[in-house]
Design a protein around this nucleic acid. Structure first.
Lengths: 357, 357
DNA sequence: CTATTGAATGTTACCGGTACCATCAAAGGC
DNA sequence: GCCTTTGATGGTACCGGTAACATTCAATAG
């Protein structure tokens, strides 16, 4: 009793010191040891020192599992990410993770692979593990996921969108507006035949929204609506290159290309270079996300800067505040975006000529 | 008893069903419910169905925290990653995470920010949470980290290097050999003044090894040893561009540049384009990691392909085998690397001329 | 027909902490 | 000087499962 089993490398079982062992050695009650660790100032200095000595002597490592069970909180947040191989999700998570660390919380991670049913399984497991809160990427979830989280009153934050009906809280930006504004900017710069490359829109409302924003602007500004101007492709540089060849094959007169991801845009830009298509003179290219690479490309890439890290860390503080019982005034927080105009979408040559004359 | 507290959104406390509630409703003993969930075939079909009905009726969600405490295993692996904002670490982790998922294990994540003391804190927390195994990035750890893991006999796997004295197990490749081979290849192609850009080597034995491999090859093949050929910089495209300007300012005759990261190489390549330095005619550039972007650049980038995903997943299966008590024959697994020659390091113009004559 | 066996199920105690309440001595108030 | 308050510590039960062992009973063997 008071000693945990440890499977030693030699195969024999060793007992690990427990709080009762520490207490005995320090000549105090187990409860006092517990207090010394959780609320040091509630214990006298001498006792604290005796306990510290006993802990050092026994090599005691507190058992958070037992502590979690007893105190009914795990100091753990469950996070569902589509995949880590995705800079933007990684940045959200990084910001989030830092906010947690600052308050002693830890991150349990699950990959959904962009599949809502996968997310559902992970969330169920999170609930079984009694996480104190849940972080979800995006706003597309199964009905069961939503119900589980709500019925169990789990503080939850959804990242990257602005859902109309959040499960609990959300931090993000308007994907629709951002795409609309990029398209408007292109229209105002004089481009008329603007193509769109998005990644797959299935179960990904962010891409859906971006596509919708683009379409709305195309309509509002009277741009060319050829359906061949819109393509969904894998999040892959090579796929972007391939699709660019298709596009210029079908519509050689395309004058601008909006990609809902900077890597897609980079892939298209590289392919354009290979094809001898001058950017932006023959074709303007705009990206999305504001990754570091965008400003280093030649020409530098016009893009939408998303406050990725900030969204993550804001989500973290909101979630922890909620867990701590503080009132969260605003359930859906819009962190905005910023269009960064760069060389890849300079005013087109035709316009320049007109302006010059 | 048998009911857990749930803090309802309305503030009132609701009792959550426990295994005893399910048992009562199904008319069986709690133990039978536990068995029905863990070893269904050990329970008769009728009983199983009664229990399933009771679970559905109560909305029972098993409490893994209690289960973990009682069974003394958490089905959790703790992973320390320097940062998620790093494609290569993300790929390792992704492969690892998939291997875990296949066997029902979950991932607890901690960021060390490349600081060994940060890692130490995280590992201590992992031990307190009684993770079943630990995943560490790299082979640079504090003495205390090593001691904690060994004394507690925690199955551990170190990723990305081939440590001489692994804490327990390791999966990686020889960073030294890879860098040596790239440098040799450049030497054999006729380059004599080969520069090196690495990221910071402090507490990062992978970069140290790569730099050492480069230096060994420089020596073995009689290349120019000007110390100004070696630079350590941030993992940042812009920093690479800046450093390239410094380099060509100091040594305009540099004929090749080896970067120990593909993004660094890309940054250098973009800057070269801006400076009017032709690649590979004026300057050859080689990268490291084998990221997707490498093959899409213009010219496409020579690089070292690391089996990132495979390293992660192999590490996962090794760790779980070890936890399952299977013997792991090989403690340090070398997953190799592959040099991919592409356009950015074609034979230099001077050599081409000679060859042609 | 009784002993043996094994599948299905039950009983009990325990995993290692902490919530909650009790106790007790010293300090402070009037 | 007596009562209340405060700080330090202790005792006990309990968190919600499961390990280990016990029990029951029908099927099979001898």
């Amino acid at each position: 009793m008071g000693m945990e089993n440890v499977s030693g490398s030699s195969g024999r079982r060793v007992k690990r010191a427990g709080i009762r062992d520490v207490a005995r050695l320090a000549g105090v009650a187990p409860m006092t040891v517990s207090r010394a660790l959780s609320f040091p100032h509630r214990v006298s200095i001498e006792t604290r020192e005796k306990i510290a000595a006993a802990i050092a002597a026994t090599g005691y490592i507190p058992n958070r599992v037992a502590s979690n069970l007893s105190s009914n909180q795990t100091m753990t947040i469950g996070a569902v990410i589509p995949t880590l191989r995705n800079s933007i999700a990684a940045d959200f998570t990084e910001g989030f993770s830092r906010a947690l660390k600052a308050r002693g919380y830890h991150l349990l991670l699950g990959n959904s692979d962009f599949i809502p049913e996968g997310e559902e399984t992970i969330v169920a497991e999170f609930l079984a593990r009694r996480v104190d809160g849940v972080y979800l990427t995006g706003a597309t979830h199964t009905a069961k996921t939503r119900k589980m989280l709500r019925d169990n009153a789990i503080p939850t934050v959804e990242i990257a969108s602005l859902p109309e009906d959040p499960i609990d809280m959300a931090v993000g930006f308007s994907n629709f507006d951002a795409a609309y504004e990029v398209t408007r900017m292109l229209a105002e710069q004089g481009y008329r035949r603007v193509a769109l490359f998005t990644t797959f829109t299935k179960d990904n409302e962010r891409q859906v929204e971006r596509q919708a924003g683009y379409r709305a602007a195309v309509r509002d500004f009277g741009l060319d609506t050829d359906p061949r101007f819109v393509a969904e492709l894998e999040m892959d540089l090579k796929a972007a290159g391939r699709q660019l060849r298709v596009l210029v094959g079908e519509r050689p007169d395309v004058d601008a290309l909006f990609c809902t991801g900077d890597f897609i845009a980079a892939g298209a830009l590289f392919e354009a270079q290979r094809l001898g298509i001058r950017v932006p003179d023959d074709l303007a290219i705009a990206g999305f996300e504001g990754l570091e690479i965008a400003e280093n490309l030649n020409p530098s890439l016009t893009t939408v800067r998303i406050p990725r890290f900030e969204i993550g860390s804001r989500a973290g503080t909101m979630l922890l505040d909620r867990i701590a019982g503080k009132d969260v005034e605003q359930r859906v927080v819009d962190m905005g975006f910023e269009i960064i105009k760069r060389g890849s979408t300079a005013t087109p040559a035709t316009l320049r000529r007109e302006t010059a004359s």
